[in-house]
Amino acid sequence: MSKKDKEPLFSAKNRKLLLGPLSASNPVVVQILGICSALAVTAKLQPAFVMAISVTVVTAFSNLIMSLLRNSIPSRIRIIVQLVVIAFLVILVDQVLKAYVYDVSKQLSVFVGLIITNCIIMGRVEAFALGNKPWPAFLDGVGNGAGYGLILIIVAIFRELLGAGTLWGYQVIPASFYDAGYSNNGLMLLPPMALIIVGIIIWVHRSWKKDLQEK
């Protein structure tokens, strides 16, 4: 394993693997992966946060396991082995959520299962874990999971704050605002607004990082 090489655990290269996906190669807004199920859980901050953690755990460990197995997998059944490993991790996560954060797991419902088909996970395993040592693969998984989670949490903050006036279930917009005629924007809680917010995040992000703009 990676213990043999002299490279320190957090060398510049490894730090890039971990931090790159937060912005420059963010899986959601740059690579456009894994939007699938995730946005449906962003109406409130708490489920979005739990979802982000779950996805990070699954990406990190599926990368780690696949990287450990990479030299023994028969290439003909590669995809199915990947799916089994990912599904296995997702089931574990689902069982743990059901046991320890029951209320949130109820809100997430089928979306936990959909982590399996989250393109980020398959994408990272295929593109990175199969060709790299376990430790970098693990960091890459954590980084991508976190980059994904970051977007999820930003979207959830906007939607919960503007749509319900709360954050994490606590009222943050003071009652005096409502007395002065402010009212919550129910539209923010409906599914389509998640897409529009992501669109706006992409807009802001690409105005800042001009090299990412599409021709």
Partner: peptide, 14 residues
């Protein structure tokens, strides 16, 4: 690694 028996053993163990 691509022989049938290896694949079968591999998937069974997994």
């Amino acid at each position: 690694k691509n022989s049938n028996s290896y694949i079968i053993i591999y998937s069974t163990v997994m």
